[in-house]
Amino acid sequence: MQANTLSGGFADPATQSAHAFRSVMEAMARPGTIQDIEGAAPPAPLSPAMGAVLLTLCDTETPIYLAGDMDCEAARAWLAFHTGAHFVGPAHCMFAVGKWDALAPLAVYPIGTSEYPDRSTTLIVECSELAAGATLTGPGIKDQATLSLPEVEAFQVNPTLFPLGLDFIFTCGERLAALPRSTKVS
């Protein structure tokens, strides 16, 4: 076991996760806004923002899928120690973690059922940048917003499934943004 497996969690979990959650919630409630999030120092390839989101939302009840490079011993050991979450394949995960290319294809993730659309995966996507980009409209957005997306087409298909669909959190360094299934992209 690496020494950094045990370090890098929240020093004061109750208040740090409260602040981190508010960042995640503001991002999800206002798609296109970029929020600061801090408090976690996970081992690479997890970014600080990715680590903070996972510490805030994951525990023994949330199966995680680690995609591509993220599926490494350092990430597995750190998440297992700090969250207790177990690791599964994409078809059964509640949270999927990875870079955009590694997370494809999106068709394998649960999108919920018509009676329980909340039983769907939230994908946490590690991005190289968060900036202005594609035009967003929908709930949470006054007039319109803009956000850099790894591609456009997949995010145009996703809202057509509403109320089913996938929700996305984009992390980069110590910042994050989000794109719920209700947001239309053009």
């Binding site: 996760s17 995640v24 999800m28 805030t56 939302l57 994951c58 929700d167 719920p180 299934r181």
Partner: peptide, 15 residues
């Protein structure tokens, strides 16, 4: 709190 927070995020995603 984590369980409630996850529910809040899904609630916001499906108004």
């Amino acid at each position: 709190k984590r369980m409630i927070r996850r529910a809040i995020l899904k609630g916001l995603a499906i108004p």
